[in-house]
């Protein structure tokens, strides 16, 4: 809003010039003197200095008015304020207010009268509490937003770092592997050249770890896992976490994501005998109806 309004001044000048160019080709020059106003002052403007000063004399307070009546302070503006630069302009105003307050407070202090609000003085404020609540909320929200952004930025940074480290590790591992394979090959060749000094079989078997898979667990079904269990028996492992937790785990293993559903939803011999799920309170209801 502010920018827009301030910028008016500059745009006016520019537009006026453009317009002049356009119109000079086509038509009337009668209006051309109207829109030059900002670049050079119009001649019809009135400036009656004597009358102004006379009026000033008429309305002004007497010269010797005590300062406490006016409470006004003049502050020198160091340099011309660039109006279109919001930040410097506001800073100039702030500085003016700051300097003025400083001087005024010194004067007030020298007068020896109470001028600062005591902490237990409660009175109506310009803005209501309700409004101030809103202001506070906004400030807090802004703060939170900033914090969140900061956190997100940090997380991203950390991720990037982790990725780099991971890449480094992978590279190292690959290098190590290559080195190992290389050494093994070398060793084999050496052995071949030396004409198989020892029995050949056990040597080949000894290096199963080359591909590094011998230590990994197989992903096949484990023994002792029921046919309906998708978690591979993990649901049953969760002991000591409370009843609901257990139940949840079981349900997850039964109904959760992944795997084929077809077999699991059918009854088996076990489930038909299982009466755990039946409503125990049913008998009660019947009783009620009888009464």
């Amino acid at each position: 809003m502010e920018e827009h309004l301030v910028n008016h001044d500059t745009t006016i000048g520019g537009e006026a010039e453009d317009l002049n160019e356009e119109r000079s080709a086509s038509e009337s020059e009668s209006e051309s003197d109207e829109d030059v106003k900002l670049t050079e002052p119009s001649k019809t403007a009135v400036y009656n200095r004597d009358a102004l000063l006379d009026k000033l004399g008429d309305i002004s307070w007497p010269e010797n008015v005590v300062w406490i009546h006016t409470l006004s302070i003049d502050i020198d503006q160091e340099q011309e304020v660039d109006v279109n630069d919001d930040l410097t302009r506001e800073l100039a105003f702030y500085n003016q207010a700051f300097e003025g307050t400083k001087q005024a407070y010194q004067k007030l202090q020298s007068l020896g009268l109470p001028f600062l609000r005591p902490p237990d003085y409660y009175a109506e404020m310009v803005k209501t509490d309700n409004h101030m609540q809103k202001v506070k909320g906004r400030v807090l929200a802004e703060k939170r937003k900033m914090e969140e952004a900061e956190e997100r930025r940090k997380a991203r940074e950390a991720k990037r770092l982790a990725k780099e480290i991971q890449a480094q590790k992978m590279k190292e591992r690959a290098k190590q592997k290559k080195q190992d394979i290389e050494s093994v090959k070398k060793w084999r060749k050496q052995r071949q050249q030396s004409g198989f000094a020892d029995h050949g079989n056990d040597a080949d078997l000894g290096f199963d770890f080359e591909d590094g898979k011998s230590f990994e667990r197989s992903k096949g079904k484990r023994p002792g896992v029921s046919p309906g269990d998708r978690s591979g028996g993990k649901g049953k492992q969760a002991f000591g976490k409370g009843k609901t937790q257990k139940k949840r785990e079981f349900r997850n293993s039964k109904f959760g994501f992944g795997g084929r559903k077809g077999m699991k939803k059918q009854n088996t011999a076990d489930t038909t005998y299982d009466v755990k799920g039946f409503n125990k309170g049913e008998g009660k209801g019947n009783k009620k109806r009888k009464r």
Partner: peptide, 27 residues
């Protein structure tokens, strides 16, 4: 936020003194 009705301290920039109409406006 401030007290409603507390007397303000007025600060004027010194360029209010530079011309007659500004002086009148200041007053």
């Amino acid at each position: 936020n401030h007290l409603k009705g507390s007397r303000p301290i007025l600060t004027f920039s010194t360029n209010f003194e530079k011309d007659a109409h500004w002086r009148l406006l200041k007053e």
